[in-house]
Design a protein around this nucleic acid. Structure first.
Lengths: 197, 197
DNA sequence: CTTGAAATGAGACAAAGATCTCATTAGCTT
DNA sequence: AAGCTAATGAGATCTTTGTCTCATTTCAAG
């Protein structure tokens, strides 16, 4: 099934993703059958678009809640990378707290990808939404940083921003939201300044 | 099946966990049937001890590969927190590369705990192995740090060391092992020095 | 409006995961 | 050593997941 009727196909695909996102918001762990029912399509059709529930859940919660760069940096200082990274952090924090169940589900499934890639050749790859935003935040600091340091810093910040950091704070360290934010902002300052020096 | 013949039960339970650990070391994602075969018990018996493969794999790799503090810091400098954190990092890196499939499985399941806690009352809680080691590494720096900074630093380092950071490096950033190590060590320096200042 | 092709729905089918039953084996007590 | 009882093994059975076929619906071009 391909190359036939583009807009019909895009519509049902979108319906499936939205149905999945709806179920995820309820904190459920839906099966592909559940999603098909919620989207009011047949099970067979759902399987025509996604080989399994994991493939669907990788995309589901994210298509909705992507922070847009221009929105994140709206009236943000153009020259202060730390202030700009704080914006990125805030954007991710609010996006994640609104989508925590879906993000946990997504992580739960994508984390197993390497164990399953023996099954069939092509698995959907985990997307990386944070790096473009981090790069954009760091843009003004580009001139004052050595390229090698800029690369190091961007990767380091990717550990601070995102779902995995949320998991560490909540599940491993069991800190509350405000403490977690304090730690992240402290880290942003420490890391950016270290790269500058 | 309970409260009947303690040592026989402990023995087969241990056999199952060891069999699972053996299969995991080969990089496979074993099914409960595989583990039963490896442990030379029947499939039915395996299911009597663990409801599914995930439940087994949460425990399997961890009972074996816990880095012991005294071993990690054997002939490590007593007064250099950075060198000591590098030891912790190295210990986690080697433990994780030897147990990656099991750790991914563990993370995949524990990450869903908040979504499942409605199902039945008691879920095993995620353990925190890194914080004690981080505290031990930082011990010599305690006198030169304000208590608040020490707390901040310990939490920040918990983002750098551990399974979640490995996931970010491998799955999100797709860096190789040596680059990931470079970033972690750079972060350790940046964070410890920031706390000192 | 008609028509041809593509998407869909319904259900049969297959494979894997998990449960259940019951006869047999093997610990533990005496 | 004997007997009771819990644990085990083997296989039947049920459930869930994913595939396949074919009739029906629906889109869109003419």
């Amino acid at each position: 099934m391909s190359e036939g009727r583009p807009n019909q196909r895009r519509r049902t695909r979108k319906d499936l993703l939205q149905a999945a996102a709806r179920l995820l918001k309820q904190g459920k762990a839906p099966t592909l059958e559940d999603v098909a029912a919620e989207a009011m399509v047949s099970r067979a059709t759902a399987y025509r678009y996604f080989p399994n529930i994991e493939a669907l859940l990788i995309e589901a919660p994210l298509d909705t809640a992507v922070p847009e760069p221009d929105e994140v940096f709206r009236d943000a200082p153009k020259d202060d990378p730390i202030a700009r990274m704080d914006r990125v952090d805030a954007a991710f924090e609010s996006m994640m707290s609104a989508n925590e169940p879906g993000l946990r589900m997504m992580l739960s499934n994508t984390v197993l990808r390497p164990l399953r890639e023996s099954e069939d050749g092509e698995l959907p790859k985990r997307q990386n939404r944070r790096s473009p935003l981090i790069e954009a935040a760091l843009e003004p600091a580009r001139k004052e940083l050595k390229p090698a340091d800029a690369k190091l810093l961007a990767k380091a910040l990717a550990l601070v921003i995102g779902t995995e950091a949320m998991i560490v704070f909540k599940d491993v360290l069991q800190t509350d939201e405000s403490e977690a934010r304090k730690v992240r902002r402290w880290m942003i300052r420490a890391l950016v300044n270290a790269a500058r020096k």
